[in-house]
Design a protein around this nucleic acid. Structure first.
Lengths: 197, 197
DNA sequence: TCCAATCTACCTACTAGTTGGTAGGCAGTG
DNA sequence: CACTGCCTACCAACTAGTAGGTAGATTGGA
């Protein structure tokens, strides 16, 4: 009937790993830390993920997959480029304000990219390429329709937008103020979205 | 006669630590790593910096001091707000392109702030507050003179500018392309600096 | 001026605890 | 029986940090 998901331990491990990574990066946690919060023994994690690289590679790969399906669904529900950008920014504003996802896993991992195992680094790069490509498409479409105002090539505007989002996450963290993110994104969106009257 | 600086070992240790931190963050290096590149034994590092927290706190504190003196001097030589922003962005573009300082130490540490020892976290916050304050002053002045065009309060524009700079550093790292930084900053500066003709 | 006390910068040798990872066993289930 | 999921009990390597010693420079007093 339905695709069975008999054991959620692997998911629990991934969830624990994600929260540790967003707190302190790849080297900021150990198998022992995960074992503590999941409630199993350290060795049992190796049963699900033979090595730390496996664990984090799987985590980032799934993170990208979720982003792909999320963006696809978002585009189906909210097709207008200005709303797409607003919704994307609003999603992160929400995540940061309720502390559920205080920063993007891949933004954090990218910052320590030279120290990452190459398999993980490759997945992080793939995420950046996807997100940048998606934003470029949205901005391109918005510019063609006249619903977005751009001052440079869509690709460049997309990279700038993404950079501002990631930088705003870091600033929110530095100030310990969850509203900093929305404060920074408000004018950034304003500049892209033409005033209506 | 002159202020003597008899031993540069402490500085060598700090320099090595900085390059390890920009590569992989606070947990991305060990005393053994530093000992290897400096050419002394692990225990000797403890003579200069009793603990890892001492080492990194000193590093970030000095990083902020250098920023303060650097900005002060920059403002004396190049007083016009548009040029100040351009020079600041150009400084980092240069650092990233020649790989001498591929990312800001504090931007990286801020991303893993929850996992940092509180003493280090405090220094990182101080850096953000200084930089944000400096940029706010520059933008405020530029707006008052009419040499900068702003769409939001100077404070907000300053935070957005800083966030874009930090995000652009991360993107450059993710793509492994040192020119990404300047590509992102070009339109960001353009939007602030009114066209001349 | 000589000598002793002190200080600096480094060393070897060690500690207790943690790291990711392995070997092998055992209970439950299809 | 075979497989899954978890366990105990390891392991070698590495972690930050300590103890204690040494060679050489600096300092202060007789």
């Amino acid at each position: 009937m339905s695709m069975d998901k008999p054991s959620n331990t692997a998911d629990d491990i991934l969830a624990a790993a994600r929260s540790f990574i967003v707190a302190g990066g790849y080297n900021g946690f150990s198998y022992a830390d995960i074992a503590d919060v999941v409630g199993i023994r350290k060795a049992s994690i190796h049963h699900h993920f033979p090595s730390k690289v496996d664990l984090v590679r799987t985590l980032v790969k799934r993170y990208l997959e979720d982003a792909v399906t999320g963006m696809t669904e978002l585009e189906r529900n909210v097709p207008a480029p200005p709303q797409l950008l607003r919704t994307y920014a609003g999603f992160w504003a929400q995540c940061i304000e309720d502390a559920s996802r205080p920063i993007c896993v891949c933004a954090l991992l990218a910052s320590e990219l030279p120290a990452l195992p190459p398999e993980v680094a490759a997945e992080v790069r793939a995420y950046f390429q996807f997100l940048s490509g998606w934003l470029t498409g949205v901005i391109e479409r918005g510019a063609a329709q006249g619903t977005l105002t751009i001052a440079a090539a869509p690709r460049v505007e997309a990279e700038a937008f993404m950079a501002t989002v990631h930088g705003a996450m870091i600033s929110a963290r530095a100030y310990g103020d969850v509203l900093t993110f929305s404060m920074i994104l408000a004018p950034t969106l304003q500049k892209l979205i033409p005033a209506r009257d």
